[in-house]
Amino acid sequence: MTREPDPKYETLLQELLLGERNLDSPEVQEMLSSSESCRDLYAELRELQGDLEASGSETRSEIDQAVRDTVPADRDRVAQVFHQQSSAQTRTASTPPRRSGGHLPWALAAGFLVLAGFWFVGRDDAPSQAFLGSGSIEGLAPVGEVSDYETFRWRGETLASGYYELRIRDLQDRSRTAKSVTPLLEPEWTPTSEERAALPPAIEWEILWYDASRELVSSDRKSARRSP
């Protein structure tokens, strides 16, 4: 451990480390030759500056490399999380404060909206997304322990625009996508017997719903495993 330097040299030491003084200036030479603690501290702080430079260089190269190594699936994943968080934030922000009494007008308005929703969805020209209402998607099957992966199903309807993408990963190694199926228009997909056999014993499956402009609307993940 280095002793604290003589206070009279603090300013000089600071200037030296900031590059405002040269090592060969007479004042610096006098300080380094007369004060062992200053000499040791200067050496330690210079080494630390070198470590910081190396750490900064490593960070920059890591970021540059990451930008180059980014794959489309990474973008989808980031989009999924950020859009989910954004929706949750919006829902929280728009939730009205609880008030006592005066519920009747709200109940009437809600009832009217529900009826209007049924009427709207029932129309032939209603856009498919109206079925999903809140803009969320939900995986239905397979979930948990199953005898085999028969049909993958999710809450949704046949899409007139946009598409679904189903990604199946090995639950033991989620970085490995075992199967990816896209574009799907129906809210289900049934693997062939060969495809079923090729799937890992335990899986995490993710269903992603994209609109016509290929923007991620919603997604959900579920896991399942074959019973032994």
């Binding site: 890591e62 930008v67 990474d74």
Partner: peptide, 14 residues
Amino acid sequence: LVERLQCVPAMIRA
């Protein structure tokens, strides 16, 4: 924001 931070998964893997 997604465009800017899409490198995060690769950053963590690296």
